[in-house]
Write a protein that binds this DNA or RNA. Sequence first.
DNA 1: AAGCGAAGCGTAAACGTTTCCAGGTAGTTG
DNA 2: CAACTACCTGGAAACGTTTACGCTTCGCTT
Lengths: 327, 327
Amino acid sequence: MTSTSRDVARAAGVSVATVSRAFSEAGAVSELTRRKVLTEARRLGYSPNPAARRLITGRSGNIGLIVPDLANPFFADIIKGVQRRAREARQAILVADTDEQARLEGDALRSLARQVDGVILASPRSEIEDLPDDLNIPIVLIHRQAPGWWSVSADFAEGIRQALVNVRALGHDNVAYAAGPIQSWSGGMRTASLRHHAAELGVCLYELGSVAPTIDGGLAAADLALATPATALIAYNDVVAIGAMRRFAARGVSVPRDMSVVGCDNTMLSQLAVPALTTVGVPRYEAGEAAVALLERTLADADAVPVQQLLPTALVIRDTTAPPRRS
Amino acid sequence: MTSTSRDVARAAGVSVATVSRAFSEAGAVSELTRRKVLTEARRLGYSPNPAARRLITGRSGNIGLIVPDLANPFFADIIKGVQRRAREARQAILVADTDEQARLEGDALRSLARQVDGVILASPRSEIEDLPDDLNIPIVLIHRQAPGWWSVSADFAEGIRQALVNVRALGHDNVAYAAGPIQSWSGGMRTASLRHHAAELGVCLYELGSVAPTIDGGLAAADLALATPATALIAYNDVVAIGAMRRFAARGVSVPRDMSVVGCDNTMLSQLAVPALTTVGVPRYEAGEAAVALLERTLADADAVPVQQLLPTALVIRDTTAPPRRS
DNA sequence: AAGCGAAGCGTAAACGTTTCCAGGTAGTTG
DNA sequence: CAACTACCTGGAAACGTTTACGCTTCGCTT
């Protein structure tokens, strides 16, 4: 059906080896024959069969991407970053969604392993030691650090510190914190940072415990917060913050007059909220790009020493933070 | 490094042909040898090399998915549907994002063509005739119909009709409509349906023209709507509706007391909005699943006659629609 | 003028499967 | 007991590339 390198070779009056070289290596063939081969190839509608190529080279030209939830805007942006950088490198991406189930991560990894040159594993829900380690392909983690592993994550600790400092400067001495799922590595970073800096700044921190990272979780967090003397709420992420805002509104608590709210992630939602949400900006697009860059590095040099890259975060101030009401 | 079928064959005391059969065909090998082969394979950590397999079978076990914007929740849900159905069929998905640029769709199609068994093209921005037609792989369109093409789309016309009927029943005689991008096939369906049924129902339709499918587009639409006698606004999608709601709020127009608003798509946003948005529910997850199902059909029987599947839509009534104020 | 390195190209051997074609064995039927 | 069938299995030829190796040819040095 489709034409092969042999057809092109015959048409151009050269050998298949020359056709191959014209398509891959740069200076290995004279400019004249190269041009001849390429025009014949175009005429015949030829393009190299990737399966044959990868059988012999061992390179697939694909990279795998595993995310907990494709529909979560947080990950969607990561994918876009990956996608973009991968396109530049002429790599295609194979994506797998694990429906937030740690168990499926190993499966996905295993089924991707033979098909791709490397895998990017975003926000793994599994413990690192539960991941299969006999796969023999490079893996880059996003938002999870582990010794001996390549990773790119964001400096959540710093962003959260900025949030706390800011709230403190506005005059809030009592701050509530709604934590997220305990498996979340980045959530752990946030909690640790908050505890550390609250003590340092003399802020009284009310930990509301772990809530679901959903609107409903936010609703619950709001009620918990109102049962404390806190005048500001820092939430695990934007969704929780928005859920809390909704509940505050329902209970007649005005944001930011009666309660300041800070989210995390700076997703599209934070700009959609009314009032617009103050939040910790987390680079997602950039994280995706950086992960591909690291992967390229491991592919170029198989025994490069793993890098653990940390991207900056910064507080984005919008309309949900204000000084506490003098009452 | 990794072991091959020859290693397994040697270990199990059989030929490579038998190993191959043990892994692919069902009853082609005796249960005894089959078991022997599989245990040896497991012991050696063997799994068939997909590149070699696809070189000879011509099947890659991958399907391609092209979307205008991965970060758009509308498409994210489609991807999830595709992903899920594909996983069941043991197919991996290769995803490409075209950044809403029609031009990139052809490129993506071309670069995917050799790597996959078939492609799902979601909401193509290109005209059908601009797509390359020499690729020789099956394509299923989502939210775009064209004669001779496989497609699955939603019955936007019906959903929009329901919206109009409902608004009319509430007592609105003057209805504004903010249309989306003119390239949008589904947008065309909406407009046509609205015109037809407005005439039929005796509703006076104020067409505000095409706005950007963004928050900003919604802001603009709101101002345009307020310049007409309309007491209800039907928007191209949820984002436009929410943008409009924000502008209405800013101008002191209360929703739904002074103005009813209907969105389209029933994305997560419509539930997040305050008040919650009445919208036309569009099956996205299901569309993704259906597209894979159709693709499987074309793969099973290459000269099956193309099917154009239409999924139902339905109005989802929330809190932004109410009878017009008696003034 | 001989020698030599570089550049350009062809031959052929891989890569790891699947699958066609036979062969062999056992069971069944005439 | 022969003939036939059904079922397993092995040998070997694909599939379409890349690449090691070797052969020319050409220009340049000594």
